[in-house]
Amino acid sequence: MSILQVQNLSKAFGNKYAVRNVNLALTAGKIYGLVGPNGSGKSTLMKMIAGLFYPNSGSIMIMNQKLNIESKEHVSYMSTEPYFYNYMSIKTVGDFHADFYKDFDMNEYIRLIQFMELDMSMKVNNLSSGMAAKLKIAANLSRKTKLYMLDEPLNGIDLVARKKIISAIIEKSNDDNIMMISSHLIEEMEKILDEVIFIKNGDVVLLGECEKIREEHKKSIADLYLEVYANA
């Protein structure tokens, strides 16, 4: 089942292209890694798919429907920026999401908050950056949707918490959905990825199944990453 189709997608800021002529066809049941150094266009691409940036040209189809208010409901997008208000408690964050998204599953949220070793009564204001990151992931994965886009879910997170987040992602992925995860921490991510998308200066430079790429190039995705971006 095709969940996301992107055709000739471009976005420029001023006269500089952030994303240029990107084509993607992502099918259900897979975990995709979107990798590339800072400023390569990962977040811009995700933001366009989430409907937050308007592309200069090209098209985005979600569940065989043009990106619009209806098809946008299939997307759970987690930005790198924290977006909760300081006065909120973890419980209010859940209620806030439940108000916004009809596919938000409060029981799942309660389970994930426990799994992440957080507490419903904690105030957003008092969370460490690692805790805030875990909260963001719990909130986004509590939706029951088709396309999860997590922008840098492992940023600023310690090793133990990273393991938790990776487990939560594996658990959440199933035959009906897609996980699209951007990260610089390739070494950590590569074992859970089905396919990887290398993006460089706004262009997709390599795309394919991780195991095949490892076999063909006789090296890890992380080593290949170093090679592709050595002169970036």
């Binding site: 049941g29 897979k30 975990i31 393991k163 990776i166 487990s167 594996i170 658990e171 992925s173 199933n174 074992k191 859970i192 990825l193 089905d194 195991e211």
Partner: peptide, 14 residues
Amino acid sequence: TRTLALDYDVNTNT
């Protein structure tokens, strides 16, 4: 397969 995936930190397709 799901438990195996979690035990070894690999995705369920693997």
